[in-house]
Nucleic acid binder design. Structure first.
Lengths: 111, 111
DNA sequence: TTATTATGCATAATAATCTTATGTATATTT
DNA sequence: AAATATACATAAGATTATTATGCATAATAA
């Protein structure tokens, strides 16, 4: 996604959180929303996004609905009930990750 | 390292920062220090650590010195000048990563 | 005293995640 | 008419890590 490999493993969290906030979104919309929210800092590549969406769907975290808008296909995704639970888990994991990394690299955050 | 994949990509940052703080350390010592600082939250596996140390050395970020202590080998690593610069870069990247993720998942962090 | 755990390094096979490249197709802007 | 934007998809390759295995010595527990 960027020159930094730190984002590796974060895509699922990002997708779930955006869907948690926006009810339903389609793939391309997600890429644009991420670009907007991060002021271009982070660009989701399609090669990462679509397989990730398919995986989340296969795991039962997302439901899909295909619509045709302006003669173009859109696959709208929304969270299932399990998906909502998973979102909470992923956000907790992110907070835990940040806290752990701070303890490691920022001495004043150590207990 | 954990159940969370968010740590993927963070190992280099962790190693560099610990060496930045402790002057010289050997591999096993790093695993123990990480365990200690994170209260067992994060455990560095050897299969990840040693290849990572070798790579950092090959890239010119670490110098190595082999010592025998208590009849057992220890490979002490320390930062080169380039390694110190890389440490600063990696720490900046971490802060940027955290800021970007907060903008994405924490609405109140959005500008 | 023998077995387990701790210390210490190393690598190969496998898995997960992502980048890059490519493909298809329509709509809009230059 | 050409380039860019919209929209989805997948395959090849790279990166990073897990798991499993191997070797070797020291210290502790059974």
């Amino acid at each position: 996604m960027k020159n930094s490999n730190l984002y590796k493993g974060s895509l699922t969290t990002i997708i779930l959180k955006l869907l948690n906030e926006h009810d339903k979104m389609y793939g391309y919309e997600i890429t644009q929303k991420v670009k907007e929210l991060t002021k271009g800092e982070l660009k989701i590549t399609e090669g990462a996004l679509y397989p990730s969406l398919h995986k989340l769907e296969a795991e039962g975290f997302l439901d899909v609905e295909v619509l045709k808008v302006d003669n173009r296909m859109r696959k709208y995704y929304k969270l299932t009930e399990e998906g909502t639970k998973e979102t909470v888990n992923k956000l907790d994991e992110l907070e835990q990750y940040i806290a752990t990394m701070r303890a490691l690299v920022n001495p004043k955050f150590r207990v």
